[in-house]
Design a protein around this nucleic acid. Structure first.
Length: 281
DNA sequence: ACCTCCCTGGCC
DNA sequence: GGCCAGGGAGGT
C-alpha cells in the first residue's frame, strides 16, 4: 500500500522516464480515476495531450507534475495504484485506467485495481481548492520542527495514531509507517495527541525519518498480497524491517511481549504493550 | 470527531 | 458467499 516511501520510489522512477518528455497521445479509460476532473475522460485527455513534463515532485503521498502550459498533474496511488513505463506493444494489464504514449516511443501506464487512486490535471485556481492545498509539511523532505508539531498537537484529544494519519500536521505517513514510527518512539498509539510529551515528540520525529529512510532504501514495503510493487514490477524488500505492523500475536523483537492489535479510527493498529506503555510522569 | 462511501482480490 | 483491507472525500 503506497505510502511516502513507495510514492518517493515511484517519483524517482517517473522523473527518469518523464522529465522533458512530451505526451503524444493520452487515453484516460476510467471515470473514477478522473473523478477530480469531474470524472471527465475528455478533460484529462485534452489537458495532457501535447504537453511536456517540467518536473516530477512529491508532497506526502501525492505526485505533483508541473506541465509546460502552467497546468499541474496531481496523482495519488491510493491503495493499489502503480505507474509503469512499458512498450506501446506490451499488452495492457488488467485494471489499466490510464495510458499515455511519450515522444520517445515509450508508454506510461497507470494500473489501479481498487481505484482509490486518481490522476487529475489542474490549473492554479483548481489547485488551491484541491485537497493537496491542505496537506501538511512532507515527513521526509520538510518535516516539522519538534516545537511546531508540539504546538499542532497541543490540546488534541484524538489518539496520536489518528493525528499522524491525518496528513494535516505531517504528510506521507500511512498505516504501516505510522505504526512503525510510534513503536520506535515508544509511544502508545492510543495516547491523546496533546498528552505526547515534548521528549516523545522529538523521538517520534527521529523515528519517522529513520523508518522512512530505511523503507526508501529497501524499495518500499510489498506485503504478502503484492498489492504494491515497484514501478518495474519487482517487490519491495522492506517487509522484513517491520517491527510491529502485521505482527500481532507474535513476540516483540525488543522485549518478547506479544504484539497487540487494536482498531483506531477504523484502522488496524499494531503495537507492543510493553515497549509502548503510556509515559509515567 | 465521527460516519459512510468507494473498490477488488484474497481469504476464511 | 461473505468479510476484510485501506486513503481520502464528503457529509452530519
Amino acid at each position: 500500500m503506497p505510502e511516502l516511501p513507495e510514492v518517493e520510489i515511484t517519483r524517482q522512477h517517473l522523473a527518469t522516464a518523464l522529465l522533458g518528455r512530451s505526451l503524444v497521445s493520452v487515453s484516460m479509460r476510467h471515470a473514477r480515476t478522473a473523478r477530480h476532473n469531474h470524472g471527465s475522460l475528455d478533460i484529462v485527455e485534452q489537458r495532457l495531450t501535447g504537453r511536456r513534463v517540467l518536473e516530477v515532485r512529491r508532497l506526502g503521498k501525492y505526485l505533483v507534475i508541473p506541465l509546460d502550459d502552467g497546468m499541474t498533474v496531481v496523482a495519488h496511488l491510493g491503495m493499489s495504484g502503480r505507474f509503469s513505463i512499458a512498450s506501446p506493444d506490451d499488452p495492457l494489464e488488467l485494471h489499466t485506467h490510464f495510458v499515455a504514449e511519450l515522444d520517445d516511443g515509450t508508454s506510461l501506464r497507470f494500473v489501479d485495481p481498487r481505484t482509490f487512486g486518481f490522476i487529475a490535471v489542474h490549473d492554479d485556481a483548481e489547485l488551491e481548492t484541491s485537497g493537496i492545498a491542505r496537506i501538511g509539511p512532507d515527513a521526509w523532505e520538510d518535516p516539522p520542527a519538534p516545537i511546531d508539531l508540539a504546538v499542532a498537537l497541543r490540546g488534541r484529544t484524538a489518539p496520536i495514531k489518528a493525528l499522524l494519519l491525518d496528513q494535516a500536521h505531517i504528510s506521507g505517513l500511512g498505516n504501516i509507517y505510522a505504526d512503525e514510527a510510534l513503536f520506535r518512539a515508544g509511544i502508545d498509539p492510543r495516547t491523546p495527541g496533546g498528552e505526547v510529551t515534548d521528549v516523545r515528540i522529538e523521538l517520534l520525529l527521529d523515528a519517522i525519518r529513520e523508518v522512512l529512510g530505511v523503507a526508501i532504501s529497501n524499495g518500499g514495503t510489498s506485503l504478502d498480497d503484492l498489492a504494491y510493487l515497484l514501478p518495474d514490477g519487482r517487490a519491495g524488500e522492506n517487509l522484513r524491517q517491520l517491527k510491529v505492523y502485521g505482527r500481532d500475536g507474535e513476540p516483540c523483537y525488543d522485549c518478547g511481549e506479544i504484539i497487540d492489535k487494536v482498531v483506531i479510527r477504523s484502522r488496524s493498529t499494531h503495537f507492543c504493550p510493553h515497549c509502548q506503555a503510556p509515559d509515567v510522569g
